[in-house]
Design a protein around this nucleic acid. Sequence first.
RNA 1: GGAGGGUUGGCAGAGUGGCCUAAUGCAGCGGUUUGCUAAACCGCGCCCGCUUUUGUGGGCUCACAGGUUCGAAUCCUGUACCCUCCGCCA
Length: 422
Amino acid sequence: MLDINFIRENQDKVKEAIKHKQLEGTVDVDEVLALDKDYITLLQEVEELRASRNKLTDAIAHAATTQRLALIEEASVIKKELTELEPKLTALKEELDAKLLWIPNIPAEDVPVGEGEDQNVVLRQEGELPSFEFTPKDHMELGEALAMIDTQRGAKIGGFRGYFLANTGTQLHRAILQYALDFLRQKDFTIMEVPWLVKPEHFIGTGYFPWGEEDHYSVQDGLALIGTAEVSLTSYYADEVLAENDLPVCLAGISPCYRREVGSYGKDTKGVFRVHQFTKVEQVVLLPEGEELSRQWHEKLLSNAEEFLKSLDLPYQIKLMCTGDMGASQRKKYDIETWFPAQRTYRETHSDSYFLDFQARRLNMKYKTKKGEVKYINTLNNTLAASPRLLAAVMENYQEEDGSIRVPNVLQSYMNGLEIIR
RNA sequence: GGAGGGUUGGCAGAGUGGCCUAAUGCAGCGGUUUGCUAAACCGCGCCCGCUUUUGUGGGCUCACAGGUUCGAAUCCUGUACCCUCCGCCA
């Protein structure tokens, strides 16, 4: 959520952001500002009435009995007016707040303007692509041959995009995730198991709702299944006021992630690349305000993920996302794409964003500065490891001609010392 | 699923219709005073307007939402959450 004062004073910037983020038609800034104006006008009217009522009730309390009746009579008139105006005020405020939820964050200055993924910018590529003296197989072919992945029965039991992992498949998947958790533990992140079912207000708070409601599964008790641990982790201190000394807060969460993937029916139907349920280790950082600081940490979270991928010897590229391909609440976003040899291309495995106070305003999450001022926290997050997508990347990059798969050095201790899967 | 108890500022804790504009204590931060430190004293949330450094007037705030009343922390109804017990359960 943007500060209403900011919207009043920077209408053009807000309109431009809506246009550049391809959100035209979802919200009308002029309409919001008109509502805001009506609200303030009515608010002032109501507050004046309340002021006179307060004066009268005070007078009644101190008046002689003989004068009381007349004063009460007078107060009743004001009461009647307030009874009429107050519900209007509430309704106006609700309408305004609901519309404000649709106003996106403003992209940072260095985010390229673009309509979609074609305008994203590759910043650099890291790691040496593996060279195979044979045609590399995709993870599905490898996984079936080694009995690591079973999507046939996955679909039979879990429907479209369902999957089972088995034996070394289960082990390697869990090794990646446990290694990721240990990796962040060493970097002084607090590693957390988080609620997977979360109240809608925290999806709104983190900026997934209202925009992405149809991408989520909701359950009959009014909760929804998280698509990322970010939702639970970023909301952890919602409605609280932290001390400045508590910051930065570095949280790492592991959780299943549920995604309906409604817009992608025909895409990536083979294997376990795009599934409705996967597991992810996520980094979330809470900071004091300041764009420079957020930008430093944005790079730091990126380098955490890079260090992780390098330790696994996986080649990747960094993409700077253009305005049209970033989330409504994000200020700037990098994707890391990891090399998938069978597809001969880099595919998204990580997403690194910062938000300034956009999420914290929605979550009512503040901190008190050393001087005693209360300010909104700034938030960021990045993936560290999402699997089975990363499992697929490891399998494809580490395959041998005979269809076996080497276990990356850093994962061997998580696999009882196993060096090769055959 | 059932029964009972509870929720007051950062924390503790008083307050059962009108000097509650929420006592008191503790902590933190800022300020005043001051050789230094300490002590003492003053202040501390949110919203709106006017001034826009300061300031100033008003409104709101006792879990949340309604209701009763001229007036609600206080009375009534509903909801959420916490605690205890019964039932069920990995």
